[in-house]
Design a binder for these strands. Sequence first.
DNA 1: CTGTTAGCGCATTCAA
DNA 2: TTGAATGCGCTAACAG
Lengths: 337, 337
Amino acid sequence: MEKKLPTIKEIAKKLNISVSTVSRALHDHPSIGLRTKTQVQKLAAEMNYEPNQTAIQFKQGKTFTLGLILPNLREEYFSLAISGIEDIAFKNNYNVLIGQSHDELDREQKILEIMRKHRVDGIVVSISKQTTGIEHFEQLEKYNIPVVFFDRVPDVPDIHSVWCSLYYSTVEAVEFLFDKGHKRVAYIQGPQSLNIKNERLAGYYEAHKKRKIAVQESLVVTTDLSRESTEKAMAGLLAQKNRPTAILAFNDNVALDAIQYAKNKKLRINRDLSVVSYANWPITAYLDFPPLASVEQFPYEQGVRATELLFKVLNTKSSQGALPYENVVLKSELVVH
Amino acid sequence: MEKKLPTIKEIAKKLNISVSTVSRALHDHPSIGLRTKTQVQKLAAEMNYEPNQTAIQFKQGKTFTLGLILPNLREEYFSLAISGIEDIAFKNNYNVLIGQSHDELDREQKILEIMRKHRVDGIVVSISKQTTGIEHFEQLEKYNIPVVFFDRVPDVPDIHSVWCSLYYSTVEAVEFLFDKGHKRVAYIQGPQSLNIKNERLAGYYEAHKKRKIAVQESLVVTTDLSRESTEKAMAGLLAQKNRPTAILAFNDNVALDAIQYAKNKKLRINRDLSVVSYANWPITAYLDFPPLASVEQFPYEQGVRATELLFKVLNTKSSQGALPYENVVLKSELVVH
DNA sequence: CTGTTAGCGCATTCAA
DNA sequence: TTGAATGCGCTAACAG
């Protein structure tokens, strides 16, 4: 029993008027007589008429859908970003198609292909940790699908982007540790692909410079974000004869693994070893020894700004030529727990 | 510079054949000559032809999109469910539109409306904690949009559903605590709307019955899942002169808040107070005193089964009449940490 | 094996 | 102020 939904054609027939009149009446077109208009709108409401979106999409050549690509949904950080993006999208009567790259380039490309075939009107993306080039994104230009990068932004010219600057907060974070009396502060950096702007490292150096403390290269180590990799980095740090007394961790996930490792090695957190981190993950509040401070990167706000920028591009495109590439930079904040 | 994407019409013109021949050739229709077919496919590839999905959606009256409604994306539990749902959806060349109810009935209804207007082909949903009736879901039948409930399933007849049975694991969990020597095990249950099957409570009673221990009504308290509410419940428990020595918590979120509260009250976790819980949230591994055990509810698997069921409904609908309502029940497992 | 044609629902241009 | 007609891209029924 396939029930058929009402169409403007049926409304037209019932009222003995033309479909175009119905269409215009429903759109409050100025050139429709008040009587006809109210008549049509009344009947449409009675029949529970709803415009067929697929027809409109087809006709307009637009899907009123945005694509959103994230490394994962597990991190609360990204789910906050989603809320920001959805809020703006819904406000513009847009839907959001979400894809997880799982930090794999392959999946990212696959998702892009799916979204392209689905003819999304635009894409907001935070790139995977394996993503070094952006050829697959540039391809989208051929299809007239604008892209806005956010949070994890590739370091190339001529893109729209929104990110959160970490430089000053990092200086502040490291000085915070110096103020606590620490002399040897290690830095566990993320995979090369995510260090692109390298603001964390620059801030780390700057703090040392300000305090006239020499940076010991051996205190800067790298993790690929996996637990194993972080543990290896920690092992390297703790094996040094002048082991660090504090750590600046790439993010709270890394911080948690680092803390866990240190605890297993019988270090007393916040006594033998203090940790400061990024992302300000709420869950750390449940830990007995959370990072002493974390840099808030405002994922929700980033999502909002990225989506607003995307709509700006979408709305400009139709009227004029190319919009100059825009890069929005927010400021992070050090939150002491 | 609106670039136009190639259509079958253009392919047809270039080859001096009809559009229907092109359409059939691209679909490997048997009645097309091999020469024509390869010719068409070759040219299509050269021109980077891609079928216009919006046209197909319009024509077929299908969007090849599923709606997925979840209470939130913050809990890793639900993001695992998403992965299960996406895996099956993608396998069937379907997209997934995700909406968060934020555990509010209003939002749930709003999302439903958006999805209906978007003409999704079917919906998978885990209801909000405010959802008591399902009228808003039943409405969808009028629009021929089948619904499969999963995880949080309303207790009404005539629905498709997939959930994870908690009864036996709960018996096991409570007996696990008894085995540890606990005599007074409290139960912090969730809001009424989520206790529908009440398997937790039934299992709690059954364990007491098996061990011939009387259930003390005062040890069964309720939280609305918020931290404040859980703290209030805890306060009530700890104020009793025969305070419980162990707690069965509605889920790991509640468990964490309960543990936090107890620690603030100077109770020693796992000595003065032990906790067992549900959901098996990985993050608890980072805690110094995590729940001793947690009931695994297999959200990924639930998502898979729910989506498979939805496709079964979708595929049956077109051919025959109504598919009898189906209810899939998985079994939970107690995981001791 | 291939072509012609109609039509999905709607917005819109052109005529009246 | 309204109607008739067109076309978006594609599939499928029908005809040859």
